[in-house]
């Protein structure tokens, strides 16, 4: 019985779809059934999306309001592009697997893990890194005032996640901060100061320009 089920399942996999599941698509889609290999598709005529790489290709990034034209392999992450190609080292490489938050930057205002975004994919988006913040930004000042940092390696990522959070939650409580910053990890144990800092900075940021 199990044997049989497995057989059916793999048949289905091989053909891509099973008869039963097949639903006739729209005219345009139904017509587009040419089966091509990856190499053939790579040579697709104009009109189809252009395939680039694997070698370096032009990549234009808008970081902190500045336009940067780079040549990068498609596999270069946004984090590596920032750090290794633009020398913007505020975002840190720690886990490099989208877990710790040390590489947090803002993409169109929303915090993301730069280690898990391809640079080529970040084109056309507004990228903000910690370097965009003036050193007297209320969030940075609050982190210092409440000593929400020790070794400091997680801190820029926390600050960026906190800035995005505070812009949305000016009246936040420490409990809200705990929920809003659950995508970042600190090893030194600075959470007590961070909780206080973000609550305070969120209120200050509301009235401030460029916050």
């Amino acid at each position: 019985m199990a044997e049989k089920q497995r057989g059916r399942a793999s048949d289905r996999l091989r053909s891509g779809i099973s008869r039963r599941d097949f639903l006739r698509g729209s005219g345009a889609l139904a017509a587009a059934t040419a089966l091509r290999t990856a190499t053939e598709a790579a040579a697709a005529p104009a009109g189809a999306a252009s395939v680039v790489g694997p070698g370096p290709v032009p990549v234009t990034l808008t970081v902190n309001g500045q336009t940067h034209r780079l040549k990068l392999e498609p596999r270069v992450t946004l984090l590596d592009a920032l750090r290794n190609h633009l020398d913007l080292t505020g975002a840190k490489k720690v886990c490099d697997r989208g877990t710790c938050g040390a590489c947090t930057v803002l993409l169109d205002g929303a915090p993301v893990y730069a280690c898990s975004v391809l640079a080529i994919d970040a084109q056309g988006h507004k990228i903000e890194t910690v370097e965009a913040l003036s050193p007297d930004h209320p969030m940075i000042q609050a982190f210092v005032d409440h000593d929400g940092l020790q070794c400091g390696f997680c801190t820029p990522g926390f600050v960026m996640a906190a800035v995005a959070f505070a812009r949305q939650n000016p009246e936040c409580s420490e409990e809200d901060v705990c929920r809003g910053l659950s995508g970042n990890i600190c090893r030194c144990g600075t959470y007590v100061g961070i909780r206080e800092a973000v609550v305070e900075a969120a209120r200050k940021m509301r009235g401030a320009a460029n916050a």
Binding site: T89, G90, A91, T129, V130, E131, L133, P135, D136, H137, M139, I140, Q141, F143, V144, D147, G148, L149, G152, T155, P156, V159
Partner: peptide, 9 residues
């Protein structure tokens, strides 16, 4: 050195 660290500098 708090500002230097928190600001990514």
């Amino acid at each position: 050195d708090g500002v230097a660290k928190a600001s990514g500098r």
